[in-house]
Design a binder for these strands. Structure first.
Lengths: 364, 364
DNA sequence: GTTTAGCACTCGACGACCGAGAGTGCTAAT
DNA sequence: ATTAGCACTCTCGGTCGTCGAGTGCTAAAC
């Protein structure tokens, strides 16, 4: 879109003022903002042209103008000034993320809460493993004659376990045998390849303890399925109510129930590259329910195997720049923390860990 | 409170009608409900008396009457007819709870979601361990020269683990030694007794690998603290908006932000005994924010060590009886499932588990 | 040709007003 | 003790008129 410099300035002024006040902005207000180097009459003319270009719209005659979705798009692409995140916010993000003691899903949760609190919009956070998950290793810990623990190490270096009580007795020797068999047959293969055939051949191999094999196999399948699942959390939905466009309870509820519906989350926009912030404005959204909302999302990748997404949903009237800055700062923080969280780097002498003072600096 | 039989009938009619319609109910409507065996004029007189007793109130002259908090209290204590849960709902609860694959906190979460969906009110679910948590046993699994897994069995039969990467080498032999030391000194004691003194004496005992001892001890402390924490979830807050008394967005938000504030949850009412349903009506609540809401909560105990609570928060105009029936049904289901969830009873012949078809029947 | 002052016009927001309806309390009759 | 009747009260919903912000157009100024 090729606009005269003056039109650009006016469009930017309209967007920024409207974002602040939520009221249609009139020619006079723009003139004031621009230091009255141009008269309101001229601005009226320019605004009329911007309207015929489809960048502004009028709620009704004799009201001010409001940016159209296309207007926001031009603003985001060409006019928006990149915001720095405030040091307060940066501090807060760093602290909140670091204070999480452990647990990937906890951390992702926390990031969502943080994003929604900081932006005052509902946030969604999702994470998924990119590669295939397999079991790298089985161990069975003998507790007593009817009890043992399954410990599995996954190929992405997480550990899962389960305590098993049996009605038939087991011995440490049997467990050793089982471990050998499972480590031989069940490691390094994806969930699809754990077939009933494999299970029954394994049962034949151990001869005894048929039921136990089935239990362990079941646990393994459950585990691998769970790892494959995309973990998504939506938080801060109530924040919507703070914004005048969602004073209408029904409207707010429609959107929120859409966001809360697990099945629909797949249709939220997904940025293409790590670190990139994706703005999806109003009707650019695939889902009808998001037609008059904007979504800002940022992707972060951790190594090869984990990729995640954190985003917020709000009215098209959003502080695009500020929100983007906050989200990408959080995403950076997550990248750093997740990269280090499961692999605690221990140096016996100095005892400082990778989490020490954070590797993530301030956004641009 | 000693009321004439007729007053009781009228009070009950007012409460039940008001709960249905959310409109103040007039003498005529009560007369109709009561089969017009009494005239509306008589009922007017009775209602005037009920008002002077403090059981009914008038929003304004020339409107119908509305139950006062005290009125609801009398209703709940003396007049309410116990409701049976519908078989549909029972089925739904059973299915939803059984379909959860695993994980205590998942199950509690699910129960909250269920409660809020079924009752259309925000629900809160919490669970805590009653006794002290200690570690029953340590195992260390050697992975490679710089990596091992800590596996701990807690005294409540849950297993926790962590993968540790070191910058210094370890050997299986060292891990065996460590396990012996930790099993000797760190088992069976609560978190408070893991003191710096204990840690440093342990460090001296192993001689080598000072840093590793500290890491393991740190993990242990973290674990025990986590186990002590009360796990609370609030779900379905948006349900509030469905109820006419919360059409006012600000009012809804005040309540929701109160419920979402972790620090305040401690002040929600707690039933005294397992299985008991506790009704807390309006001003009976300690917290100012709950002054015009009612809370219905039910407690469930699982064995000696785990106790939980599930409740809903709503306007005083609630279907007390139905909500109570649903909650106690859910609580029963939780008791049964939680009692069995961590100890999978395996019978190799028939393969049916304790979860088979559920041990919890219908609430009287 | 571009910019600007001036002016008539449009349209939504807000408040006043008013009638309808529901429900009450009181009185008098049963 | 109960009930019919009636005057009274108060809310709710709709209509109407005013107010003000903002526009588009025209004509003058630069």
């Amino acid at each position: 879109m090729n606009l005269s410099e003056r039109k650009k300035v006016i469009l930017r002024a309209v967007v920024e003022q409207y974002v602040q006040t939520a009221e249609p902005v009139g020619s006079k207000a723009v003139a004031a903002e621009l230091g009255s180097s141009i008269s309101s009459a001229t601005i009226r003319n320019e605004m009329a042209e911007l309207e015929s270009l489809g960048l502004l719209e009028q709620p009704h005659t004799s009201a001010g103008r409001v940016p159209s979705p296309l207007g926001y798009r031009i603003y985001v692409n060409e006019l928006m000034r990149r915001q720095k995140i405030s040091t307060d916010d940066a501090q807060m993000i760093t602290n909140a993320l670091k204070s999480r003691t452990s647990g990937k899903s906890d951390l992702i949760d926390e990031a969502g809460v943080l994003a929604s609190r900081l932006t005052t919009y509902p946030a969604y956070a999702m994470a998924t493993v990119a590669g295939v998950t397999t079991i790298a290793r089985f161990d069975f810990i003998f507790i007593d004659s009817h009890t043992f623990i399954i410990v599995t190490l996954l190929n992405n270096d997480t550990v899962k376990n389960k305590l098993i009580h049996l009605t038939v007795p087991v011995s440490p020797k049997m467990l050793t045998k089982l471990a050998a068999v499972f480590n031989a047959s069940f490691t390094g293969i994806p969930e699809e390849r754990i077939t009933p055939a494999l299970i029954s051949s394994t049962e034949r191999a151990v001869g005894d303890m048929i039921g136990v094999v089935a239990v362990i196999a079941g646990f393994t399948i459950e585990l691998l399925c769970e790892a494959k699942a995309i973990d998504t959390r939506v938080t801060g939905t109530m924040n919507l109510l703070n914004h005048p466009e969602y004073r209408d309870v029904d409207k707010a509820q429609r959107l929120i129930s859409y966001l809360t519906d697990d099945n629909e989350l797949a249709r939220l926009p997904l940025p293409n590259a790590s670190g990139e912030v994706k703005f999806t404005i109003g009707p650019e959204n695939l889902a009808d329910e998001l037609r008059d909302t904007s979504v800002i999302a940022v992707r972060y990748d951790v190594g090869d195997d984990l990729q995640g997404l954190i985003g917020v949903v709000g009215p098209t009237r959003m502080e695009y720049s500020k929100v983007a800055a906050k989200l990408s700062y959080i995403a950076q923080g997550l990248s750093v923390l997740l990269a280090g969280s499961d692999k605690l780097q221990l140096n016996p002498e100095s005892k400082n860990s990778k989490l020490g003072d954070g590797g993530f600096g301030q956004d641009e």
